[in-house]
């Protein structure tokens, strides 16, 4: 009950925070339109048989949702600086309620990003069978779990000054190594990428391109990262709440 109430106000605050909202949702959208709109008639991107707008729709969906998840850390860091985390600790709100609100808010932002990019894709002539789109969205949501934990962990580890560069830089690196910008075809980068959750997030989005499902390795990699980062987030939270002046 109190957890749901807190989540509701958390969502409300995320929507009302116009700058956060605009940059979270607007950035991937603008990026997408700038890249894909000039080539909206290219139906055979890189001789793959895949249309240009579709390719970049799924690519930016993976990037945009990842950023939406990690950026919850910035909001946590700001709340910590305001002393709000301490204020919450003298209420009956449990750590579980708190984490749930943060994760759900991040997921809400990610879902809005998916929706906006899908609509923009449709505008540029992308059409996907409903079943394939749903499978893609489902797998994207699953593969975002580690990033939800990463955002919370960073939010409790870093202060307001450091969190921006850390999340921005971290997301760029993860996106690059995950193959968001160009496909990782072979060699060391591919091997490295396949160990990262961002690679499988991109692969989840690519389900929209190819219709090929997710291998077992994807489930395991995402599961392990989600677990490790959740432990990391819990550790950072506990370390942080021991004593904050």
């Amino acid at each position: 009950m109190r957890g749901i109430l807190y989540t509701r106000y958390e969502l409300l605050r995320a929507i009302r925070n116009r700058r956060f909202f605009f940059f979270s949702i607007g950035f991937p959208l603008v990026f997408y339109l700038v890249i894909a709109a000039p080539y909206r008639n290219n139906q055979n991107f890189d001789n793959s048989g895949i249309s240009f707008p579709l390719y970049y729709m799924v690519g930016l969906t993976s990037l945009g949702t990842m950023i939406a998840m990690i950026s919850s850390g910035a909001r946590i860091a700001a709340e910590r600086q305001a002393g709000w985390t301490r204020q919450l600790r003298i209420t009956p709100l449990t750590t579980r309620d708190y984490f749930r609100a943060k994760v759900l808010t991040a997921y809400m932002m990610a879902c809005l990003t998916i929706l906006v990019l899908s609509l923009a894709g449709a505008l540029l002539g992308v059409s996907l069978p409903a079943g394939r789109w749903l499978e893609m969205v489902g797998l994207i949501l699953v593969s975002l779990a580690p990033f939800a934990a990463l955002g919370i962990m960073l939010g409790h580890l870093l202060n307001v000054d450091a969190i921006g560069p850390a999340t921005g830089g971290g997301a760029s690196l993860l996106a690059f190594l995950g193959g968001t910008w160009f496909p990782l075809k072979h060699g060391f980068l591919l091997e490295l990428g396949r160990l990262l959750p961002s690679y499988w997030l991109v692969q989840a989005a690519h389900v929209g391109l190819t219709g090929h499902g997710w291998p077992l390795r994807a489930w395991i990699t995402i599961g392990v990262w989600a677990l490790l980062l959740a432990i990391g987030a819990a550790w950072a939270f506990r370390r942080d709440t021991k004593r904050v002046a």
């Binding site: 009302r16 204020q87 002046a245």
Partner: peptide, 20 residues
């Protein structure tokens, strides 16, 4: 030390806290 979380009205913030 402490300030308040943003983007809520005074009444909303107090209603949220009361609900806990």
């Amino acid at each position: 030390t402490g300030s308040l979380i943003q983007y809520l009205s005074v009444r909303e913030l107090l209603t949220m806290m009361a609900g806990m």
